[in-house]
Design a binder for these strands. Structure first.
Lengths: 203, 203, 203, 203
DNA sequence: AATGAATGAGATTTCATTCAT
DNA sequence: TATGAATGAAATCTCATTCAT
């Protein structure tokens, strides 16, 4: 019966377990993420894990939570500025920032996502999608002419999903044929041009 | 040391194991795909699996092979026709066909891909990417003016990856906000407009 | 229900299985001696083994039989000549001949004995011991003065067992420090001197 | 990845597993030495074995280690005294002591050696051979005239190997025709006489 | 509170033997 | 008769979780 960690040391251990989870998954893959390995990486005994988590799955849930939380926070922090720039520019910066975050700490987060640890719980990415949808909405309100684009929700959907998954895929490639900037610029312009054309056509 | 099945009965069993693999993964997820469950689904004894596969992983490899093989074949079959139509139309049809294939047999393939069974071996999707890249190339040669689009490789890359992953994602959603046609049209136009704009700008 | 092989082809298969047994054990060790491997080596199907043997153990028994039979026959063939020479000379020749037999066919027999295949059935070596005991007895009768040696049975026992096992051990060594001849001469003289001293002392 | 046992309880379990190994092999033979049987004999769960050993083979290795260690220690302990007595006497005592050790605990060690458990790893007996070789060397230095015996290494080799293996064989026999003392005396005199004769001849 | 040790439950794999043709 | 295929039974090994200190 794990309790919410209240004391300082406890909080530290709790966080240490989650970080150990990321480290182990990143280094050894999902299959290497045994409770023993995680405990070792966290510098504690196996049994201690169960002081903070009911079972191993809860560790993954917490990792998932932290990762999506962090990405969503990053997006929210960027939103005020991005709504002021063009769609193209917004998409471009978004991707570059996302890449930066995923590449921190020896690509820890990127590798965990590759390990698809959370694909089984892709719904958990919902928080990220919501933040991105909010960003898109805010951006649209800052550029009201975009409201004339037909099927705007589809545009948002495609842009967001392509952005997230294709970036993941790009970052995963060992020898990409072009730079991250070129790649990000490509997706960005695709979104920008789309809106542009739809608006001019509509007109 | 499994031998290549020679007799008719053996061939049947071999295929049954692979199909059982798809069925079990689709129904119970990767974690439910134990050798016992697969054997049960195939209507054989566990030991028989090892007449044809060295280990469980080889079953997954064979499944992966079959799935990507099938998708690639579908793409190749479509290629002659798609190179003649506009990029927008080609992307649209491609996505619709892909969706059709993935939804066969109670979405068997779709669910398996969701289970990320092959994400760990995403390289295996290479066959599919290659077929799509070939299609894109053939299409470009049938529309030589596209050669003027700057950073064409990036366009191909983004279009292909967005197409595949975002379609996977769309099909996975329980309650999509728009139809497959709208979705496909969205991605398709995005590609089409991009090229269009780049060409006119270039000029 | 295997039958005694009567037809020529059957006899051939029966022998082939036994030979395959020796080959497989020699090459892959006891653990590699599966029915499948043996059948493969014999160029027949697994099931065919059971036309000639009730179970795998019977193959080993037959191998054991053949091997000890062959050694015993060799000993018996040598006996008439060896009884005429000195004990030292007899032991020496015996060891050299034994080594020759064990080294045939890429040390097939030697390796099988090393694999201790038949140590579990060391009693089966009984046939060999009996032949050697007979030789010793015959030799003693040809040299009646030896009857004066006290504890002659112990001498026979030690000489025979040392001879067999130590030779096995010697042949198994990858880099012996002396030649087979030196080694054989050593054991031989040990037996010869013993008798010599005992006789002179007795007197 | 087993860890070195640190706590008292763990050390106890570790030792219990090894002892259980000896007991099971002695009673049921190598084939009966399954992880389950060993765990049962040790009074623990099967899984616990893997807390201390990576695999079953490592148990055998540890048993081998312990057994040879124990024999070698016995030999070393005896060495100071044996170098002072005649070769005959030394060999005799050596064999008697060896027999005593092998017969402890219901012939536990003897039966394990018979099961040839370690014949596959006969190299592990190296420790014993080395101890015996050291003893022989030390004895020779205490009796410098022996240095005149030609081919002394061969003598050592034969004496040691015959001693070990033939003793094993003798102890394994259900109804020996003579006592251990007679047997040991036989081997001992064989070595003693050999040296004696060679020396007198040399002269 | 913390943890080294222990383990039940279950997964993968092996193989002698039998089946069916 | 001959055999490729099939399998029951059992062995090895893994690991999340609990126990005992």
């Amino acid at each position: 019966m794990p309790r919410k960690p209240t004391q300082t040391r406890a909080k530290h251990t709790y966080a240490a377990i989650i970080e150990a989870g990321f480290i182990v998954v990143a280094k050894e893959g999902i299959k290497g993420a045994t409770t023993r390995n995680i405990a070792d990486a966290a510098g504690i005994g196996v049994a201690s894990i169960y002081e903070y988590f009911n079972n191993k799955d809860e560790i993954f849930a917490a990792m998932s939570e932290q990762l999506t939380q962090e990405i969503a926070a990053m997006i929210k922090g960027l939103t005020p500025r991005l709504v002021r720039v063009s769609l193209t520019e917004a998409v471009y910066e978004m991707i570059v920032e996302l890449a930066k975050l995923l590449r921190q700490n020896d690509e820890r987060y990127l590798r965990c996502l590759q390990e698809s640890m959370m694909l089984e719980r892709m719904d958990k990415l919902g928080k990220v999608y919501r933040a991105l949808t909010d960003l898109f909405t805010a951006h649209t309100f800052a550029h009201p002419e975009h409201l004339n684009v037909p099927n705007l929700p589809v545009v948002a959907y495609v842009l967001i999903n392509s952005g997230v998954f294709t970036t993941l895929r790009y970052l995963s490639q060992p020898n990409p044929q072009f730079t991250l900037e070129e790649f990000a610029r490509g997706i960005a312009k695709m979104g920008g041009h789309y809106v542009e054309v739809e608006l001019s056509t509509k007109h």
